[in-house]
Write a protein that binds this DNA or RNA. Structure first.
Length: 426
RNA sequence: GGAGAGGUAUCGAAGCGGUCAUAACGAGGCGGUCUUGAAAACCGUUUGGCGGCGACGCCACAUGGGUUCGAAUCCCAUCCUCUCCGCCA
């Protein structure tokens, strides 16, 4: 979401940005919205003038009524009526234009950061850095659900009967491991100065529209029937929504928060939904980090955020890498984003376990999240990143900590959360 | 879910068809006077959005409609909060 003033004054930058994202079909929208905006402002100026006249006359009528001059008042009333139709017409035009403008503005992508690599789709994403040695053991690493089954740790058959494909029962030590990872991740972030928050798991439609684009919303969000409520796809949604219509004092920034929530996703149109296992599912749990900060600080926070995730995975002996999203793969609301990917010794490649995004002022503009500055208010920047989403983390965890004899090593940092166990044995 | 009360600025709270709605009156914040410093007292200041180069104008009293020349005020709908009752982790 851009500022219409910015679009008006910098149409070339906006168009160039659309081209960089390989969305040329949207190019005509720029001139269209500028034209609509021009019409809209003309209509508003005229309507404002008519309203000013009306207000003035209404005041005069009040004064005359007070003095008991009824006849003169009646004369003025007739005058007001004369312009009433024109004003109604303008007001209608105004609201129609506003709606059309907003609809287009929702489709024009955020200006991407200069550093974002240009590319048409995810095949052009760029590896930034590797952390840890990606080891391929001598023995064969089984599929993650097979490892879980050795510990009687998962029941997908029952889950399918009860809720359908895309759900799981985690059981025993595997379930405990899941909770341990979440608890550890929570404390890990608290130790780094983040404030722990448990948010609502359902939110109103206007908040959903504020935090994500329409295509994302359609593909992800479950709606509660008969109510203006959606199940959150990530706690980012309710965490950013928390600041809707707020003006935050500068001294309260940056807000550094870490939130826990279950996440519900339709995964409409996503590949891999058929895949057996817990990689892509309709419900999972996640520890998230959120930052609301001043615009000039968002780039620094972006780097700190993904680094947190890397550090967390490294503390569990899981090799990771960061993969930067190229322009064409970047969601329209984002300025910059990267995935943190964990090493899979079984697949001998990295796979996504988290995603770090700088939204710039896009969400702030949609939700009117402002900062109270000394010289007026200005829009905040918002960022979010996955600390850890256990189902995917468990895949990486089990594969990387599996020993040849079938046992699974539990790293030291996680042991306190597992009742002191140093390993899992079937 | 039932009954009642209510939603006005940072907070409390008045206004209940025009002539004090940017909004009284308190409190808080900020600036100043006084003071060695602080407190107290006193003075000043303190909503957000839109249009316009500006002068200035428009909009907003939970939200959306309606009545009226004119709505915070009257009518309708919706949402939310509080109290009591019911139900319930």
């Amino acid at each position: 979401m851009l500022d219409i003033k910015f679009v008006r004054e910098n149409p070339d930058i906006v168009k160039e940005n659309i081209k960089k994202k390989f969305q040329d079909a949207k190019l005509p929208l720029v001139d269209e919205v500028i034209e609509l905006d021009k019409e809209n402002r003309a209509a508003q100026t005229e309507a404002d003038q008519l309203r000013a006249d009306k207000n003035k006359i209404a005041k005069q009528i009040g004064a005359l009524m007070g003095q008991g001059k009824k006849d003169e008042a009646e004369e003025l009333k007739a005058q007001v009526k004369k312009d009433a139709d024109r004003l109604t017409e303008l007001e209608k035009k105004n609201s129609e234009l506003k709606e059309r403008i907003q609809k287009i503005m929702y489709q024009i992508p955020q200006i991407i950061d200069d550093s974002v690599p240009i590319g048409e789709d995810d095949t052009h994403n760029v590896e930034i850095e590797k952390f840890g040695e990606p080891v391929v053991p001598d023995f064969e690493v089984p599929y993650h659900t097979d490892i879980m089954e050795r510990f009687n740790g998962i029941d997908l058959d029952s889950a399918r009967r009860v809720a359908g494909n895309g759900f799981y029962y985690l059981i025993g030590d595997i379930a405990r491991l899941h909770s341990a990872v979440i608890s550890y991740a929570r404390d890990f972030m608290i130790d780094r100065g983040f404030t722990y928050v448990i948010p609502p798991f359902m939110i109103h439609g206007n908040v959903v529209e504020g935090v994500m684009s329409f295509p994302e919303m359609d593909a992800m969000m479950y709606k509660i029937e008969g109510e203006d409520l959606y199940l959150i796809g990530t706690s980012e949604h309710s965490m950013i929504g928390r600041f809707i219509d707020q003006i935050i004092p500068e001294k309260d920034l940056p807000m550094t928060l870490t939130s826990y929530s279950p996440c519900f996703r339709k995964e409409k149109g996503a590949h891999g939904m058929e895949e057996r296992g817990v990689y892509r599912i309709h419900q999972f749990e996640k520890q998230e980090m959120i930052v609301v900060c001043r615009p000039e600080e968002s780039k620094i926070w972006y780097d700190k955020l993904w680094q947190n995730t890397v550090d967390l995975f490294r503390s569990l002996d899981i090799p990771v890498r960061t993969l930067e999203c190229c322009s064409g793969d970047l969601a329209d609301l984002k300025c910059k984003s990267c995935d943190v990917e964990a090493w899979s010794p079984r697949q001998k490649k990295y796979f996504e376990v988290g995603s770090c995004s700088n939204l710039g002022d896009a969400q702030a503009r949609r939700l009117r999240i402002r900062i109270k500055g000394e010289n007026g208010n200005y829009l905040a920047h918002t960022l979010n990143n996955t600390v850890v989403a256990p189902p995917r983390m468990l895949i990486a965890f089990l594969e990387n900590n599996l020993r040849e004899d079938g046992s699974v090593a539990i790293p030291k940092v996680l042991q306190p959360y597992m009742g002191g166990k140093t390993e899992l044995r079937a």
